[in-house]
């Protein structure tokens, strides 16, 4: 199951990357420069880090039949808190850095609690509950930065998003760490099973002794945390906080990544690896568009087309209508040969 779900996303990603090769023969080369790996592939991983993080959180939320529209605002809030904490701090001490991380992530988790309580305790539809934060959160972020774009001069803060470890960008390690934790929690503990069962049938899950309210609360907190980390990386990248524009449209990109990765918006089964590939597809698209010299704004059109293609490929109705003529024969043929199609 999981393998077949990953087939199309991987094909799309490979296609985009190979497509780049025609414009830039050195696209796949990774060089060591100044003691660091550089190259387009590293660049995609590095720039895609925040999106991958947020999409991981979003995957779990969507698996519970929820959605978190507030992540963009949380990015802005987390970045604002982080940047405001370290502004004017002396270079020598690392204390402001840790304080900034703790405060920013604390606020992010709190927003998750807010969403989670609205959804699980008060019973508000997720799309509605998180809409509140999507609207108001940006206001709060501007409130924190006082409506200004705050620039950070404190060097250690820039390390979160711009630092290097073992010759690779730190952000890649952060993503890998969060991804592995998520994988571990969902595959080696029963959280994954509980999330899927709550997403597919909440009342049956409750009668089976699962505290679905806490599961739901937890995934929103996790999503908030992921968005918070993403917000810190983004804010650290540009060494500033912008309440108005930081993380704009990230919620939509993240949902896109999840859907491309094969997780259904109807909840239930989820695919974390698929999500990562989905996020990489979105990031490589952006990079591609920049590198082949098409106006950056075209990105939106391409994204729209990709969303539609992926959704259509996943739609059983579309497959029936378009490939319908082959299906009946196809099933028989593949059965005989023992081959599985997609």
């Amino acid at each position: 199951m999981a393998k077949s779900k990953l087939f199309w996303p991987i094909m799309v990603l490979v296609f985009i990357l190979v497509f780049n090769l025609f414009f830039d023969p050195s696209f796949f080369t990774v060089e060591i420069r100044n003691g660091r790996f550089t190259g387009s592939l590293i660049d995609i991983l590095n720039r895609g880090a925040p999106l991958m993080l947020i999409s991981i959180g979003m995957t779990l939320v969507i698996a519970t039949k929820g959605i978190d529209l507030g992540v963009g605002s949380v990015i802005a809030m987390s970045g604002a808190v982080g940047a405001m904490t370290v502004t004017g701090s002396p270079e020598g001490s690392l204390t402001p850095l840790f304080l900034a991380i703790v405060l920013a992530l604390g606020v992010s988790v709190l927003t998750g609690v807010w969403n989670g309580v609205l959804v699980s305790r008060i019973g508000v539809q997720p799309i509605v509950a998180t809409l509140i934060l999507m609207v108001a959160g940006r206001g709060v972020a501007q409130l924190i930065t006082n409506g200004q774009i705050t620039t950070v001069y404190y060097e250690p803060y820039k390390f979160i998003g711009g630092g290097y470890l073992l010759m690779l960008p730190l952000s890649i390690f952060i993503v890998a760490f969060v991804f592995l934790i998520a994988l571990y929690l969902t595959r080696k503990t029963s959280i994954g099973l509980f999330i899927e069962s709550v997403g597919a049938n909440p009342s049956a899950s409750r009668l089976s002794g699962i505290n679905s309210k806490n599961i739901i609360l937890m995934v929103y907190m996790f999503s908030g945390l992921c968005a918070g980390i993403g917000g810190l990386i983004l804010s650290s990248n540009v060494a500033s906080a912008d309440g108005n524009n930081a993380g704009l449209w990230y919620e939509l990109d993240a949902i896109l990544a999840v859907v491309i990765g094969g997780t259904s918006l109807m909840g239930g089964r989820f695919f974390l690896t698929g999500t990562i590939i989905g996020a990489l597809i979105i990031q490589s698209l952006t990079t591609t568009i920049y590198s082949i010299g098409v106006p950056a704004e075209t990105n939106l059109v391409v994204k729209a087309v990709v969303v539609l293609i992926v959704c259509l490929l996943q739609s059983p109705e579309f497959r029936n209508k378009v490939f319908g003529a082959f299906t009946r024969k196809g099933i028989k043929d593949t059965k005989d040969k023992g081959v599985t199609l997609s």
């Binding site: 029963s190 099973l193 899927e196 049938n201 899950s205 002794g209």
Partner: peptide, 22 residues
């Protein structure tokens, strides 16, 4: 409505309540 989890396998449906207490 209150029994099966449609998207899950027979195995996962069987162990659900036991895992719930565990």
């Amino acid at each position: 409505a209150e029994g099966i989890i449609p998207d899950l396998t027979i195995r996962e449906n069987i162990i659900l309540a036991m895992q719930g207490i565990n």
